[in-house]
Design a protein around this nucleic acid. Structure first.
Length: 335
DNA sequence: AAGCGTCCCAACCGCAGGTTG
DNA sequence: GCAACCTGCGGTTGGGACGCT
């Protein structure tokens, strides 16, 4: 695994380390300690550059490294810290003893980032992706439920998709454009955009941002309601210690709107009546978990940031703890 | 069993910032 | 002040492992 041995430059070996090289490096550092990486290879009898030695030691040979899978606690810690720090892997690694920045970076890119995207979150901002939401709603509309919902032919459905895309690309504010008013658009046959749509169909992804149920009702994830409620509040908020969360993804996906409604989703019986609130933020607000006013929680101790619902950083910025993320990450459909 | 595509992660690369002479 | 050197960081690469057809 890893890099293949590439042609040595200046006689310096590259690529995977073998056991003998590891032993030489470990023995030398055990005697002299880490540091002075430029001169270390020569002194340790290694045909490697200092940079390579340092990397091998820090990421693999250090005795205090914790091997094995990340625990749920570590995952949550990474998520919260990333929300605050961004791609500052070394800073994040400092809060996770035994883990390296490289390891965390890899885990983020291969697991956590993908999960956030699947759930409809922007992996950089950790906020719901309104632009993607709009796009995926189109994809959701391409499911069988759309014809029931709009009572239209498949050809007209394509017209809806195309016009919706046009709105997205033309608008600087991609958030929640009006679906209902756009269904009269002409169909441009052979459009590359239109042709690409079937490849993008993904019920799981569509669900995460607003999908149709089997009976053709549009659903909207709870996290938009939470975000809206938080954004509207002038005070810092804290989660109720025992909020109500969706009990099951499958129930919302496959068991119709009743379960969905009880879990924080809502439905349109007639989409045409909801133009003023096309995404149902207002009607869904009653499903938002209760919040209480929070006394300020300064991140004076960075180690404890995972216990805060809102983190205040030294530069005046702050990050918000999203209950949606934590609850849903444990669910099989997100895994 | 073979072929193919995707995932995972160790290791590399380039760059920025700090240190030294 | 400047150049050279050193260290550390974040992004990227690419081959083995794995799963699917």
């Amino acid at each position: 695994m890893g890099r293949p041995p590439s042609p040595a430059k200046d006689g310096v070996k590259k690529g995977p380390w073998d056991a003998e090289e590891d032993k030489k490096l470990v023995d030398f550092i055990a005697k002299h300690g880490p540091g002075c990486w430029i001169s270390l290879p020569k002194l340790a009898g290694l045909n490697r550059c200092g940079k390579s030695c340092r990397l091998r030691w820090i990421n693999y040979l250090r005795p205090d490294l914790k091997r094995g899978n990340f625990t749920a606690e570590e995952e949550q810690k990474i998520l919260r810290l990333h929300e605050i720090l961004g791609n500052k892997w070394s800073a994040i690694a400092m809060q996770l003893p035994g883990r390296t920045d490289n390891e965390i970076k890899n885990y983020w890119n291969t697991h956590l980032k993908k999960r956030l995207i699947r759930m409809g979150y922007d992996p950089m901002t950790h906020e719901p992706r309104t632009d993607l939401m709009a796009c995926l709603t189109i994809l959701a509309m391409s499911t069988n439920g759309l014809n029931d919902l709009l009572n239209r032919t498949p050809l007209d459905v394509n017209a809806v998709k195309l016009d919706y895309l046009k709105q997205m690309f033309q608008s600087t504010d991609a958030a929640a454009p009006n679906l209902v008013s756009s269904i009269s658009a002409p169909l441009l046959e052979g459009s590359p955009i239109l042709n690409s749509l079937p490849q993008l169909e993904n019920q799981e992804a569509a669900f995460s941002l607003g999908a149709t149920t089997t009976s053709g009702h549009l659903l909207q994830p709870l996290h938009h309601s939470i975000t809206t409620a938080l954004s509207a509040s002038p005070t810092d908020l804290q989660l109720d210690p025992q909020p109500t969360f969706p009990p099951s993804f499958e129930s919302m996906l496959f068991e119709g709107t009743e379960a969905a409604q009880s879990c924080g989703f809502f439905q349109w019986d007639d989409p045409a009546e909801n133009i003023s609130d096309p995404w149902g933020f207002e009607s869904a607000s009653e499903f938002v978990p209760s919040f209480t006013t929070q006394t300020d929680t300064p991140a004076s101790n960075p180690v404890d940031v995972t216990s805060c619902s809102r983190i205040h950083c030294g530069d005046g910025t702050s990050g918000r703890y999203s209950p949606w993320t934590e609850i849903l990450f444990d669910h099989p459909i997100i895994q």
